[in-house]
């Protein structure tokens, strides 16, 4: 007993140090990745057929004189080779100046600051729901493979994988907001009210989070089902059963624990999909997140905003992968963090 108590902190130190080194290595690796990605964004935007001046001017551009359009082009600084403009962006970004969004007539930092939190909240809630529901249903399905529940959730999963989140959103609004009238159809708070109260957000969050979550559930469900099902066939589980352990202990203590490992990898790799899904869900539900800004930035070739948002998405994906790797290292002692 005593030995164990003293050994634990030592063990933890042994784990924290490689973990810290892994984080450090990933941070270093993120620098070239971010540079390449943002450079790519500038290159693609420069090659895109969209004319930033027409996009900026919007409907006014169709009535403006050529003189005004030419002046706008000079003011917006959208001419010049893209590597030069990328370099200009990078050097300013490093000094903390992300530039101004031409499409939204605001500093980029303000655009992101105002909206990012709500997107993170939505993504986190949706993701948690997906993991929880996916794991629970996956275990239940794996327990009796080929049973009613298994066949039902598996076929529903394949259907959901093919269903666009946009469509799911409309369906959810129709069902919960119109037919059942239990949840509001959109927005962050009641449309007639400005105050952001926890209660209002809690009533408005479930529907978009549910839709986003549901669109992600199949991946977790099918992974967990497969993982747990495989684990149930392993010697260790058969041994546990032979020792007469309760079904509950066998399922949750043994099979789930080893079946969950691939799911951790999935957590990291689902992040890009989650971001894409959030873009659509936010649009349907008028959620005041980063999505509409992203769409606007892309179609108006708003270089500063586009670059910042892409960098942000890249960071999210890298962080997701890092988190998955760290968890994997923590969960499975055979995995050496040093090798990742």
């Amino acid at each position: 007993m005593k030995r164990e108590l003293t050994a634990r902190p030592a063990g933890r130190r042994a784990l924290w140090a490689p973990a810290a080194r892994l984080v450090g290595r990933r941070l270093l690796a993120a620098v070239p990745v971010l540079a390449v990605v943002t450079f790519g964004v500038f290159a693609v935007a420069a090659a895109s057929p969209f004319d930033p001046v027409q996009q900026y001017a919007g409907s006014a551009g169709l009535n403006a004189s050529q003189e005004t359009l030419d002046q706008l082009r000079r003011n917006l600084g959208v001419d010049g080779p893209f590597p030069e403009r990328w370099w200009h962006w990078v050097t300013h970004a490093l000094s903390g100046d992300l530039g101004d969004s031409t499409a939204l007539r605001q500093p980029v930092s303000q655009v992101i600051g105002e909206r990012l939190g709500w997107s993170v909240l939505l993504c986190a809630a949706g993701f948690l729901f997906a993991i929880a529901a996916g794991t629970a249903l996956g275990v239940a399905a794996a327990r009796r493979r080929g049973g009613m529940l298994d066949r039902a959730v598996t076929s529903v999963s394949y259907t959901l994988e093919a269903a666009p989140p946009f469509w799911l959103g409309l369906l959810a609004i129709w069902l919960f907001a119109i037919q059942l009238d239990v949840l509001p159809a959109g927005g962050l708070t009641d449309t007639g009210s400005d105050a952001v109260t926890a209660g209002a957000v809690l009533r408005h969050l479930p529907l978009p989070a549910l839709v986003l979550g549901v669109s992600q559930v199949p991946w977790f469900l099918l992974y967990v089902r497969q993982g747990v099902a495989d684990a149930l066939d392993e010697d260790a589980v058969r041994g546990a059963r032979a020792r007469g352990l309760s079904e509950r202990t066998v399922l949750l203590g043994h099979a789930l624990r080893s079946g969950l490992l691939p799911v951790l990898t999935l957590v990291g790799s689902r992040v890009p999909e989650l971001i894409t899904g959030a873009l659509l869900v936010e649009t349907v539900f008028s959620w005041p997140g980063i999505a509409s800004a992203t769409v606007e930035a892309a179609t108006s070739t708003d270089f500063p905003l586009l670059a910042a948002l892409t960098a942000l998405a890249t960071v999210a994906v890298l962080a997701g992968n890092l988190l998955a790797d760290l968890l994997y290292g923590l969960a499975d002692p055979r995995v050496a963090l040093e090798e990742m």
Partner: peptide
């Protein structure tokens, strides 16, 4: 992560009149 997200959203003021 969720908390960081929530904290980043300043809760802006405004009167919370009911509607209808």
């Amino acid at each position: 992560a969720a908390l960081t997200g929530a904290a980043a959203c300043s809760a802006p003021g405004g009167d919370g009149d009911g509607d209808g």
